[in-house]
């Protein structure tokens, strides 16, 4: 859960509030060339509830950082560590609440693997970008459209990259 000082009265003016989306099935978030805060992502995730969005089945998160920013794991963690940790916490909470499997994939490179290792986040890693994929109901074993929808990489391809 996000701490009270984060979920303030005005917090959701800076993010999505999914607390009344009964038909929501898929959420894709992407930030290419990461800079600035990623707090809006866990804020939005924190509003995804089984009671209010029971049909939710897919969350795809894709992050790629700038080649000129965050040259070290330390600087990346310094700027984004809290946000990434909150993303992971919310993903864990969602997995538990929806009683499904969570499949998170992190593409190796540019410090994200090391940063998330440091945070103790259980992701799979691939080569040049960061992709976190959450399947709330099941982990597909084939090249299903669900897996390709968010990142253009099939389940088999993703596994082979990791």
């Amino acid at each position: 859960m996000l701490p009270p000082d984060i979920v303030g009265r005005d917090a959701f003016r800076r993010s999505f509030d999914f607390s009344s989306f009964p038909n929501l099935q898929e959420v894709d978030f992407g930030v290419h060339w990461v800079s600035g805060s990623l707090l809006w992502i866990p804020l939005a995730f924190s509003t995804l509830r089984h009671t209010t969005s029971p049909r939710l089945s897919v969350i795809c998160l894709e992050l790629a950082r700038s080649p000129t920013a965050y040259r070290s794991t330390e600087t990346l963690l310094q700027d984004l560590g809290d946000d990434l940790r909150r993303v992971a916490d919310e993903a864990t909470r969602i997995e538990r609440e929806f009683e499904g499997a969570v499949n998170l994939t992190v593409v190796r490179g540019l410090g994200f693997k090391e940063a998330l290792d440091t945070l103790g986040v259980r992701f799979r890693f691939c080569e040049w970008r960061f992709v976190a994929f959450v399947n709330l109901h099941s982990i597909p074993t084939d090249s299903s459209p669900v897996l390709t929808a968010g990142n253009g990489v099939s389940a088999d391809e993703m596994t082979s990259l990791c």
Binding site: F16, F21, N23, V27, D28, F29, W33, W40
Partner: peptide, 26 residues
């Protein structure tokens, strides 16, 4: 980042929205 107007737009479709994609790119 254009979260504020985007969030207002998305909120207006709260009862019908099935899929949301929000991407910040260069």
């Amino acid at each position: 980042e254009c979260l504020l107007p985007t969030a207002r737009l998305v909120q207006a479709c709260d009862k019908t929205l099935v899929k949301l994609s929000y991407m910040i790119t260069s």
